[in-house]
Computed example of a mutant assay.
Amino acid sequence: MKRFLSISIIISGMFFQSVKGQEKQQIVEDFKPSSVNQPGQQYPQVNSQARVRARISAPQANKVQLDLGGTKYDMVKDEKGIWTGVSNPQDEGFHYYQLNIDGASVPDPGSLYFYGAGRLGSGIEIPSVDQDFFALKEVPHGLVSENIYFSKITNSFRRCFIYTPPGYNENIKTRYPVLYLQHGSFEDETGWAVQGKANLILDNLIASKQAVPMIIVMDNGYAYKPQINTASDKKEPQESVFEEVLITEVIPMIDTKFRTMANREQRAISGLSMGANQTMRIVMNHLDKFAYYGGFSGTSNYPSSDEIDPAKFLGGKFNDAKTINKQLKVLWLGLGTKEPNPFPGSVGAFRKMLDKQGIKYTFYESQATAHEWLTWRRSLNQYASLLFK
């Protein structure tokens, strides 16, 4: 049995089809500064067509481009050496971008910086029609705190960010369920609290009584054992030990330092893309510790064209449908309708296996979004509302 969720998206008449192949449209001059600009900066800007206008002073440069959404837009220099360029209409939501100056890709000094694509760089927010669910509102707000710890497994200091819900510091006898929430590839533990707006999503869900108050733990999914120098100085490929770090170090630490309900029925896990792959393996290897799973834009790595053999997939963990249906209170999958390959294929193959096995799950489609943060914000909003009930 499966349930299908969808959201209705109203597309404004000012929005156009994909960047490639669209007819040239007249630019509407109603640009406003992006909501994620540096304080006091007027650029970059976004207009009602979802176009982005960037500007930078580079008098000595010969060529400057706006690199956004997989397309490089040539910018034009004026007599003062200021370069300006405008993009085609973009999809709603948050996007990383950069400027290319004479072949060097650099952040835009006008925007705030975000860690994504393996670096600190620029970001732009294209207003979405449903942005109210992650908006900053006059509701009680939780706290996002930085938690630094030493990992014996990696022999290094690590950190995770912890969201504690409104009232946590006042209601000192109350204990809370915990959601472990993971980022995607080339991102880190800051992603969900900054680009993902996880804290605001939960604040709003809790205020409207659509979700129960919960703690969220956001750790770094990149974890490796210390490398041993060899005589040839060749570095061997590193094997991830994140699962071991999470299970043997992070969860016991969180249950000790925070007022948690330390049992599987009050513990959930989820992740996006790479994090969906990691958390899928973790939950199936440790069903004694988790009762809820959410996979946003991913499940596990396998060829999307192959039919999944449940007797072999993840060591046969999905071979016993009756046990899984009993142990997992929520098995949740989310995907954007514009996701590129291989994500639709791999998630589709996984769903076919679940259907064949008779395993219960919920599938959600984020309309008109791709492999990007609006897909994952919407996914968290839907998934969190089902937890611990």
Rank of each mutant, 00 (worst) to 15 (best):
R3T: 14
F4D: 10
G13T: 15
M14N: 10
F15S: 13
V19I: 13
Q22F: 12
F31V: 00
Q38Y: 11
Q45C: 06
Q49M: 07
R53I: 00
R55F: 01
K63Y: 10
D67A: 12
G70L: 07
G85C: 04
F94V: 00
Q98Y: 03
I101R: 05
Y113W: 08
G116M: 14
G116A: 06
G123R: 11
L136V: 06
P140L: 10
N147F: 13
S156Y: 01
P166W: 00
P166Y: 02
P166R: 05
G167D: 02
N169E: 08
I172D: 15
Q182G: 09
Q182C: 15
S185E: 15
S185W: 13
D188F: 12
Q195W: 10
I206F: 03
Q210P: 06
P213A: 03
M214Q: 13
I216W: 02
Q227A: 11
T230G: 14
A231H: 12
A231P: 05
D233F: 14
E236C: 10
F242N: 09
F242D: 11
L246I: 07
P252H: 05
T256W: 10
R259K: 02
A268W: 02
R281W: 04
G295C: 01
S297L: 04
G298P: 01
Y302I: 13
P303W: 08
D306M: 07
E307Y: 11
E307H: 11
D309P: 09
G315N: 12
L331I: 06
W332M: 15
L333I: 07
L335Q: 12
T337G: 02
E339F: 01
N341H: 11
P344K: 01
G345A: 05
G345I: 03
A349E: 00
K352I: 02
M353R: 03
M353I: 00
D355V: 04
Q367R: 11
T375D: 14
S385A: 11
